[in-house]
Design a protein around this nucleic acid. Sequence first.
RNA 1: GGCGCCGUCGCCAAGUGGUAAGGCAGAGGUCUGCAAAACCUCCAUCCCCGGUUCAAAUCCGGGCGGCGCCUCCA
Length: 471
Amino acid sequence: MRLYNTLTRREEPFTPSRDGTVRMYTCGLTVYARGHIGNFRTFVALDVLRRTLRHVAGFDVRQVMNFTDVDDRTIVESRTARVPLREYTDRFIAAFREDAASLGLEPVEAYPRATDEENLRSMVEMIQALEANGHTYRSDGSVYFRIATLPGYGKLARLDHEGIKPGARIDSDRYDKDDARDFVLWKATGPDEPTWDFGVGPGRPGWHIECSAMAHRLLDGSPIDIHAGGVDLVFPHHENEIAQSEGASGETFSRFWVHVEHLLLDEGAKMSKSLGNAFTVPDVLERGYRASALRYALLSVHYRKQLRFTWGGLDQAEEALKRLTACLARLDAVRGGAAHPEVTARVEAARRDFDDRLADDLNVPGGLGVMFELVRYLNTAIDDGGLGEADARLARAAFDGFDRVLGVIALRGAEETLADVPVEEIERLIAERKAARARRDFAAADRIRADLAGRGIVLEDTPTGTRWQRQ
RNA sequence: GGCGCCGUCGCCAAGUGGUAAGGCAGAGGUCUGCAAAACCUCCAUCCCCGGUUCAAAUCCGGGCGGCGCCUCCA
């Protein structure tokens, strides 16, 4: 498959470097608050990447997604809440897991936390390696990375080193640094702060070191195949990760860098917790939208384009999903009849086209187009009686294939089984209504339909019986 | 000030040299006890101006507009 690589600013053919297994690191959440849907835009996009690597490209994937559970904000917020740091961050890790499940994110192979001892130890080892290689200096008990010692510094972000804007936010952490662009590897303990001492003095990890160390430890050394995250991480986080990893090991850190563009608000501003304009997944669900619609909305724009989030956009996503599931229900109702060669050919072509779109730097919108063209074709075939049960089964398998990447049909199905009106009751009422219609008691029939409609269940009569659907 | 991205139908969004996918919304029709769904038909020449080319939404130049990054950030 082809993937856009931020390192080269080009699309390149991608294949894992070792025996068919993609080793991928994803920067996860800083768990000082519940992640918002902007964060999840990134995670959904990277979930699609993961699924495409597995199900379209046919690779195995070993993916690591970290939780940053110690930094200035987690420390401050936990102190404000008067809750121990670990307990405080546990809450938001649990919230992440809930939201990730709601959105149908495939679990990744490892979710390391920065403050787990084995991770802290590997960070310290990396810092010691950097010290041995002459890339560090100490100041007031903290250890810093001296970027002047690494000629390739800046290769990812391609920043103009000389042109730092006067007045830009430099040196915001107010420690003594020799150069504004140097960054902290290990921060000396402040008053009343959590602290660890595994060999470079008492303190806590700087933001960047955790990812370098955990990627190295959990993905079995450099170079890893893909390192991914939101675009805002390109600089300084990813640039500094490269500096640390390559300064310590002398080897390329990651072959590919994948960055997901931001989700913006309707007004065009970036959604972010610090700006106080963020929605969480539960916020969206409380408005009556389904997680499957949110997932669809988040993945329906190419990952390298900014996505403007609107409630109307969610409505459109919901309608599109209904069109899709309605077609699947029709397919499932087809009885009898052999395969038609023309249908087989169309379905096979759609599968190929879908995979081609996804393999082309994750062209999800293109893939959705292919899928909906097939929907129209199949609907027409059903109406014309030109679709046999064998065709329907083949088509259904194709949609299952699409959904291994999109993950949206399966999510709908899971939502159905969790809903408040039990399926058995719905089916009982449908049977009652059928009896009423048979004796032409349409008033009773309509009463049942209205009752279910009031509880969010829509009935549709078809030649093969009554179908129902949740609103 | 530096670096970079983007501007396609009312809305969302593919397409990046060969004559505009798809979704939502809208109009008309078929079907139906009603309703819904579904299907059919209709609905754009690609921000503007120049240029290159047999051919440009796609390449080049210049505008206009929107956004991101330049040490909190997915």
